[in-house]
Amino acid sequence: MDNVLKIIMQRLALGLLTLLIVSVVIFVAVNMLPGDFAQAILGQGATEESVAAIRRDLGLDQPMITRYFDWLGGVVQGDFGASFASANAASFSGTTSGVKTVAQQIGPRFANTMFLAAVTAVIAVPLAVTLGILAALYRNSVFDRAANIFTLTSISSPEFFLAYVLILFLAVLNPIFPSLSNIYDGMAFSERLNKSMLPALVLTLVVTAHMMRMTRAAIINLLASPYIEMARLKGMSPMRVIVKHALPNALAPIINVVALNLAYLITGVVVVEVVFVYPGIGQLFVDSVKTRDIPVVQACCLIFAAAYILLNLTADIMSILSNPRLRHPK
């Protein structure tokens, strides 16, 4: 087990290093965005003095390296800074109580996104793996082809199109789920679930194909192995051969694809959020880019990067744990 622990610690350290590098890239890239916050809110007619004043207020006149380390120092302590936009709104009204920290702004949105991702994952992962197993079992049959065609069609269609098709069938023609997902704090879990169902279904359609095809391919890849032949020669049923003998050895690639798709669910769902007016982090991110609200953009990017790294790390570790050679060294 020490062996595994050592590998996990190494991966964790590598993940942190990656995150640090990503933070530099994010910071530089965001600063290269054309225009800045001061100009964006004051408009074309602003005087140079007023632009400079705002820049000074927000610390934008400092050199980039100083700003980076200020920012990084805050982030490490959990302080992502104050949102420019909310600070500005507050200064117009003459109070400081309206100033929202980035964390306050992102927090609930991120929780919403995680909720949607979780609901989708709970539906999509078992569905994809089951379909993959069945497709491998009945490979080259009508079922296999139908499952392939259906999932490939859904992954090839634009998300918004899938969204509108589902709205048409499940909200308009057969009013089962609401077409708007305006969830808010303090909502009962069941209602929240009900309102999130349509976006979750759309996302399920989007991510299932990838996971299902990898499950099918990883299993079929092993079917020529001597130990699969052995299981057949022991008179085991085809289902048992696949579930007991092939699947445990096919886990590593499946886990990796699942992790990639979960990461996509957290970072890539802007379109679906917009269509269903779902208050997730994707929408906030787009809005912040529009208003050049740099601290929010940076924080979102960092969260996305962390989600990717963390999920891939988890996938790595689970792949390692799925390998009996590493779990039980000689």
């Binding site: 192995s225 001597p226 130990y227 052995m230 022991k234 007991k244 003998h245």
Partner: peptide, 16 residues
């Protein structure tokens, strides 16, 4: 009817 394969290392399932 049972079978004993040439390479036991390859014919035992590594996961069990």
């Amino acid at each position: 009817i049972a079978y004993v394969a040439q390479s036991a290392a390859a014919s035992f399932n590594p996961a069990h």
